[in-house]
Nucleic acid binder design. Sequence first.
DNA 1: TGCACGTGCCATTAATTCATTGCATGTGCC
DNA 2: GGCACATGCAATGAATTAATGGCACGTGCA
Lengths: 115, 115
Amino acid sequence: METTDLTGDSLVKVLATPASPHRMRVLAALATGPTYVSQLARDLGISRALLQVHLKRLQTVGLVADHIEVSDDGKAMKFYEVVPFALCLTPQTLATASESLTDSADRGESTKKGT
Amino acid sequence: METTDLTGDSLVKVLATPASPHRMRVLAALATGPTYVSQLARDLGISRALLQVHLKRLQTVGLVADHIEVSDDGKAMKFYEVVPFALCLTPQTLATASESLTDSADRGESTKKGT
DNA sequence: TGCACGTGCCATTAATTCATTGCATGTGCC
DNA sequence: GGCACATGCAATGAATTAATGGCACGTGCA
């Protein structure tokens, strides 16, 4: 994932995602390697509910991905891993992205690039 | 300004700043060249009050700088310009930054790195 | 069967942030 | 003096986001 691949609206959301202590820590933790929700929650010392909210958001913007993995004892665990990305922010890249900003983004909605 | 120059707390704030349509547009506009508040407000089609709020925030995180310029007719105008920056976000840079995250940042305060 | 552990999601409340409006100050010009 | 334009800031209300708690479901094991 690169800065130039994103529309202004998308970039706004992608940037806002790591811009949170919780999510930054989650990314950092996953940068070490994949882990499953409950374990990650314990590692970070936050509730599973809260972690899931942040994971979902990270996944929505495409910063992390998940896959189910069944442990030997039959437990279906959801593993998350970081999706490689390299976002370069410069006045230029932002200026370019801003060109594709829609006014509906002023609040931070939609951009549900459907089909 | 570079990613590695920032502490986790700072990075969180810096990232959150362009993560706003308004501020992204402001940066884009300033990327073209310096301008003064009232003019910029007209260009962007937003109120001066609102623009000032965003400019202040951009300046707080060091993305823009200002200087007074007195026009021929004696009006003191405040010009703003973009401060060159290149922030590279990768799982690694974020992981590194996260190490210096303080828990007080969970809400988004302080980081008033004094001297 | 009861306990431990994993997942998922919703409703509620609390806290933050965002934007608007209004007013005050200063300078040049008609 | 009155009008136009520039800046600045504070109070207020609206809206959005964040986090918690509770509850449901499934599997393996003593």
